[in-house]
Design a protein around this nucleic acid. Structure first.
Lengths: 338, 338
DNA sequence: ATGAAAGCGCTAACAG
DNA sequence: CTGTTAGCGCTTTCAT
C-alpha cells in the first residue's frame, strides 16, 4: 500500500507539501500541486483515514442508531440519512439497537466512544441523559429524529397534534365508534411516540364528547403483521367492532385493512382506516394518512449535524415540530353513512 | 479523552503492559492485569480504534454495499448482516449504491479503499473484475450475496431453478396462460438475477410446451408500486389477461395482487400469483412463494468473511446455491378450474 | 512478567 | 510557497 512518502518522493517534494497539495489545505503552487496529484494518481495513492483521523481527530464518519431497518418509516429515514451523508463525503456506521439493554450499553459505551464517529444520529430512540452525557462529554454532536430528547436538537412531527388531526378527520366523517391501534405503552425504545399518539387520539375524542376509555385502545407492534393480527382478533366480533381505526403507523393501517378484507369487512364502507407516516406506498393502498416525510427528516438531521460539526454549535437545541398535513384519499376512509 | 498512558500511570505500569493487560495479548500477571483493568474503568478509558488500527492494520469494520435499503429482500439481508457483525464485535459501514456510475466509482475507489474496512460484503450487486481487483489487491476479503461474481465466494439461490420451480407449480395447477413480471433485463445493478429468473421461467414453459415468447414477459422495478402499476395496465384487458403470474419478487407479487383486486379480479379464482423471496410478510397476504431466507444469507456471508479474516482463505471461492423450497399457500394460487 | 523504544501514516505548527 | 520537526495513541519487538 503506497503511502504519502511515496507520493512525496516521486513528486520530489516533502511529505508536508504533498499533504497540502492533496488535501487542499495551505498554499501550494499550481505546478507543484499538479506534479503531486499526478504522482498520487500513478501509484494509486489513497489517504489512510486512520492516520489522518489520528492526528486531526476527525473521522468523517457518523454513527446512526436505529431500532429497525426493515420498517417503512425507519427504512425511509435511513435512506434519507445515507444519501445526505454520502453527498457530504461522510461514511455511515449503522447500529441497530434491539430492546436488549446490555447490547444497547455496549453500543454506547464501547462502539460509539472509540473515536470512530464524529457525530451520532439517533432515530426513534429516546436517549437517556446518561447516554447523551456520554457523547456530549466527547463533544460529539448528537441529533435525534422521532421525538424530543432532553438537551439535544431533535426532528419530529408533533405526535399529539398529528394523532388528534387524523382522529378529528374520522370524527368529522360522522364516526363515533373509533379505536386506536397503537404502540405498546411500555416500550422504552420508541420515545414517547406511542403515548403521545394515544394522547392525541384521546384529546380529540374527548373534545368531541366521545368515549376514549381503555377499550378504545389496543397495543400492537407497529408492523404490518402486528396490525394484521390485532385487527383479526378485534374486528371479528360485529357487535363490538368499531367503524373506524386510527392506526399507529401506516404499516399497522395496511395490516388492518388486509385483515378486515379477509374478514369480509368492506373498507371503507364498513370500516374507515387512517395511518400516520405518509409512506410512499400508502397511495397504492389508497391509504388516508398523514404526510410526514421520513426521508426529508433524515436529510435535515444530517444538515444539522454538519452545521454543528462546522462549529455552528449554537444551533437549535430545542425540538421543532416537523410540519405535516393530512393526505385524504377516498378509499380507506368514508363518511359513516355513505 | 483519557489515553493509554493515563491508565498506565495510574496503574503504575508501562504503556506496553497496560496494552497487554487490556487487549489480552501477551503475558501479564493476574494481579497486574486487575490493577490495569481497574484503572481503566475508573477513568473510563476506551481504546482509540484509529491508533490501534494504524498499527495493526485491522479496523474491525466491514463495508456493506447494497442497492436498496427499503426493499423487503435487501432490508432482510441487511438485518441479518448487521446482527452477525455486531455479535462478532465488528462495525458495519453502509454504502447504498445507486445506478449512478460516478457515485459507484467513488465508493469503490475512494470510500472502500482508505483502510477503513477489513472486508466488503456486496449484496445484490455484480462487481466488475476491476472492482474485485481493487479490493483483492488490498487483500481485503469480499463476499457476495445474490448471484455469482467472478472469483469470489457468493451466496445465492439458484435463480434459474427457483423461477422454474414456481412456474412448474403454476403449470401443475393447470395454467397455460402464464406471464412473468420480472426485473428489467438492462439493469446492471442486480446481477443476472433478472435474466436468470426469466430464463428459468422460459425453461419451464418450454418444457411444458407452452408459449414463452416476448409477450409472456413484462419488465418492472422489483417493488410493490412497480408490480402494482404493471399489473394495472396488463390485467385490465380481459381478453389478453393471463390466468397466472410469476412475480420477480414478493413485492411485485403483492403489488400485482392489490392491483388485481382493485380491478375486480378475484385472486386466486381468476388469477394465481407466486412470489420468489419468501419474505416474512408473505404469509399475511397468503402469498405462495419460494422460501429463501435473506437474513440467514446475510449471516452466512458474515461467517464467510470472518473465516477469511482469520486466515482460512482457502474458503469456498465458488458459488454455492442456497437451498430453497416452495411454500404453497392456498390463497394466491389455485387450480385453474377450481 | 515487564519496560524501553521504535514506529504505523499522516497533519500542523513553525521556520525559512 | 516549501521543508523540518514533532507528535496523534497505540502495539510490538527486543531486551531485561
Amino acid at each position: 500500500m503506497s503511502a504519502l512518502s511515496d507520493v512525496a518522493r516521486i513528486a520530489q517534494v516533502s511529505k508536508a507539501t504533498a499533504s497540502r497539495a492533496l488535501s487542499g489545505n495551505g498554499y501550494v503552487s499550481a505546478e507543484t500541486r499538479d506534479r503531486v496529484v499526478a504522482a498520487a494518481a500513478t501509484i494509486g495513492y489513497v489517504v489512510s483515514s486512520n492516520a489522518s483521523s489520528l492526528v486531526t481527530g476527525r473521522t468523517r464518519n457518523v454513527g446512526v442508531v436505529i431500532p429497525h431497518i426493515n420498517r417503512w418509516y425507519f427504512g425511509d429515514v435511513l435512506e434519507g440519512i445515507e444519501s445526505a451523508l454520502i453527498a457530504a463525503g461522510y461514511d455511515l456506521t449503522l447500529y441497530r439497537l434491539s430492546s436488549d439493554a446490555a447490547e444497547r450499553r455496549r453500543v454506547f459505551e464501547y462502539f460509539l466512544v472509540r473515536k470512530r464517529v464524529d457525530a451520532v444520529i439517533a432515530v426513534g430512540i429516546e436517549l437517556t441523559p446518561h447516554e447523551v452525557g456520554l457523547l456530549g462529554g466527547l463533544a460529539k454532536p448528537i441529533v435525534g429524529i422521532g421525538g424530543p430528547i432532553q438537551g439535544i436538537p431533535t426532528l419530529s412531527i408533533d405526535d399529539v397534534a398529528a394523532a388528534a388531526l387524523v382522529t378529528e378527520h374520522l370524527i368529522s366523517l360522522g364516526h363515533t365508534s373509533i379505536m386506536h391501534f397503537g404502540g405498546d405503552q411500555q416500550s422504552e425504545m420508541d420515545f414517547r411516540v406511542h403515548s403521545q399518539r394515544l394522547a392525541g387520539f384521546r384529546q380529540a375524542m374527548d373534545a368531541a364528547g366521545l368515549a376514549s376509555g381503555d377499550d378504545t385502545f389496543r397495543a400492537t407492534e407497529l408492523s404490518m403483521p402486528g396490525g394484521y393480527e390485532l385487527a383479526l382478533s378485534v374486528l371479528a366480533d360485529p357487535r363490538t367492532r368499531p367503524t373506524a381505526i386510527v392506526a399507529g403507523s401506516d404499516e399497522v393501517a395496511i395490516g388492518t385493512i388486509v385483515a378486515a378484507r379477509q374478514l369480509g369487512i368492506h373498507v371503507p364502507a364498513q370500516l374507515s382506516v387512517v395511518g400516520i407516516d405518509g409512506h410512499e406506498l400508502a397511495p397504492m393502498f389508497g391509504l388516508t394518512t398523514l404526510a410526514q416525510d421520513p426521508g426529508a427528516q433524515g436529510a435535515s438531521a444530517v444538515e444539522q449535524v454538519m452545521a454543528e460539526l462546522d462549529g455552528e454549535s449554537a444551533a437549535v437545541r430545542a425540538w421543532t415540530p416537523y410540519p405535516v398535513r393530512l393526505e385524504v384519499r377516498s378509499s380507506t376512509t368514508a363518511p359513516l353513512t355513505a
